[in-house]
Design a protein around this nucleic acid. Structure first.
Length: 463
RNA sequence: UCCCCUGUAGCUCAGCUGGUAGAGCGAGCGGCUGUUAACCGCUAGGUCGUAGGUUCGAGCCCUACCGGGGGAGCCA
């Protein structure tokens, strides 16, 4: 007998098949007419398969009538056209085998909707809910879409290290990696002796694979990294995690315009795949989470992203009648309220802001001819804000080392990074996309902790 | 880290200017039904986040701490 997923069994072309279906009970309704309805879900899709269990099954009174939410069962039977409304098919059970019970007195999940806050306390059970199951499927779809997009375009997937010794880049506070005993730290001249540590120097969890990706881009052309990233910032917001997944493409011979073109088509591809491959889940998000999400994503796919320079964006903000908490003025970084105004109120679309003042951007971004701005670009989207940050990299050794000096970094420490400019330097560009941010944007989920299976935030590492 | 809000039954919440705790849902039992967030009746279930304080008396007022949410900064 064939094993069928619930997704396949729900499809009308399964009618007539004999099949075995396994999953978890969502709910049971009894009919005294002599049978019970069991809603079964196995995670293969949002919907459940309805199982009809007749009273003449040998374990009907002993077991089937005692099934409650959370129980795991295996059903063998015939897929047939459903007599009721709400589903195309149902299973007429020939046998129902119970794998595991779930005491309804103590099982936390009920049929009714739970708040996302409460579900976070049950991170081990929440993937059994409609919303978190749908998030997991969309997240998977997006991950696959990312790989497909780059692979189809000749990019090479490069695995950059998780542990790094360069504390660079100013991307944020870093987590220390050490094998030293905190109760007995080796000292030398009153200071911690890192020469005695595992890597012979201070080492950390990576905040970005970019510098490593540049190395491979400057040899192999187009590459991307996709992996976990860590920030030890004490950020308590709905958009930040201490551990998150980041995609970082890096392309030799790409200037900033090429970079922006790539970012735009990349995002559109992700939206398209989510709408196509997760249609049922996306309908669910539109119905239960954010009723603008389908309209928004479809709108974005059929229009061009707005592109404005930082200077133009500032002018828009300064000319608007809107009262900002932080008054816009050339030279300051865009505040959240500024980003929201640009994407949500003024342009009402994703916006790419580029050519930022060099004073608010890191050393590796290419300096423009005006000497005041750098070839940086941020993609801003409604609600989530900055979803992509990228730049054309500085390929001129003298400019790079001078910029490092400005930011109190020593070229000696980054000798290998400087070597890329010393030997066969090329213009190149890249950007970073936070996976959770894009999952948030696609699903409409308001808190980033609900789009990663096991969120890591300050003070929270349960599960 | 800062500002604001919040913590009462398994869940979502109500509880008046301080007077000894309530509903809906869920659960159990019974009834009814090709049902589908099913429906009807009954029952059980709470040291009101924790520790102090004010008061004759605190879920309610005060202080501290802990947890949760929203916003800000930092960023992806």
């Amino acid at each position: 007998m064939d094993q069928l997923s619930v997704a396949k069994a729900r499809n009308a072309d399964a009618i007539g098949k004999e099949a075995a279906i396994r999953g978890w009970v969502r709910t049971r309704r009894d009919s005294k007419g002599g049978f019970s309805f069991i809603e079964l879900n196995d995670g293969s899709c949002l919907g459940n398969i309805q199982v009809i269990a007749d009273a003449d099954l040998p374990n009907y009174a002993d077991e089937i009538q005692k099934l409650t939410a959370g129980c795991s069962v295996a059903v063998e039977g015939t897929i047939k056209e459903s007599g009721g409304k709400g589903q195309a098919t149902e299973v007429q059970a020939k046998s129902v085998t119970v794998h595991g019970w779930a005491d309804p007195e103590s099982y936390p999940l009920q049929k009714k909707r739970h708040s996302f806050e409460k579900l976070r306390e049950w991170a081990h059970l929440r993937p059994r809910t409609n919303a978190l199951g749908a998030v997991a499927r969309v997240r998977n779809c997006i991950s696959r879409s990312i790989h497909n997009f780059f692979q189809e375009d000749g990019f090479l997937y490069v695995n950059t290290p998780i542990i790094t010794a360069s504390d660079c880049e100013g991307a944020g506070e870093m987590f220390r990696v050490t094998t030293m005993d905190p109760a007995n730290v080796p000292l030398k001249d009153g200071k911690v002796d890192f020469a005695a540590d595992f890597f012979d120097r201070p080492s950390y969890l990576t905040v970005s694979g970019q510098l490593n990706a540049e190395i491979y881009a400057c040899a192999l052309g187009k590459v991307y990294t996709f992996g976990p990233t860590f920030r030890a910032e004490n950020s308590n917001t709905s958009r930040h995690l201490a551990e998150f997944w980041m995609v970082e493409p890096e392309m030799a011979f790409y200037d900033l315009d090429d970079n922006m073109d790539l970012a735009e088509s990349f995002l559109k591809r992700i939206f398209k795949d989510a709408l196509e491959h997760c249609a049922e889940d996306m309908e669910f998000f539109n119905l239960r989470v954010d009723d603008t999400i389908l309209e928004t994503l479809n709108g974005i796919m059929s229009s061009d992203f707005v592109r404005v320079t930082y200077t133009e964006a500032m002018k828009v903000l300064e000319d608007s009648s809107k009262k900002f908490e932080f008054a816009p003025s050339w030279g300051i970084d865009l505040q959240s309220e500024h980003e929201r105004f640009l994407t949500e109120e003024h342009f009402k679309s994703p916006v790419i802001v580029y050519d930022y003042p060099n004073t608010i951007k890191p050393f590796y971004m290419r300096v423009n001819d005006d000497g005041k701005t750098v070839r940086a670009m941020d993609v801003l989207v409604p609600k989530v804000g900055e979803i992509i940050g990228g730049s054309q990299r500085e390929e001129r050794l003298d400019v790079l080392t001078s910029r490092m000096g400005d930011q109190n970094l020593s070229p000696e420490e980054y000798w290998w990074y400087c070597d890329l400019r010393k030997y066969g330097t090329v213009p190149h560009s890249g950007f970073g996309l936070g996976l959770e941010r894009i999952v948030q944007f696609v699903t409409g989920m308001s808190n980033i902790r609900d789009v990663i299976p096991f969120p890591r935030t300050p003070g929270n590492a349960e599960f």
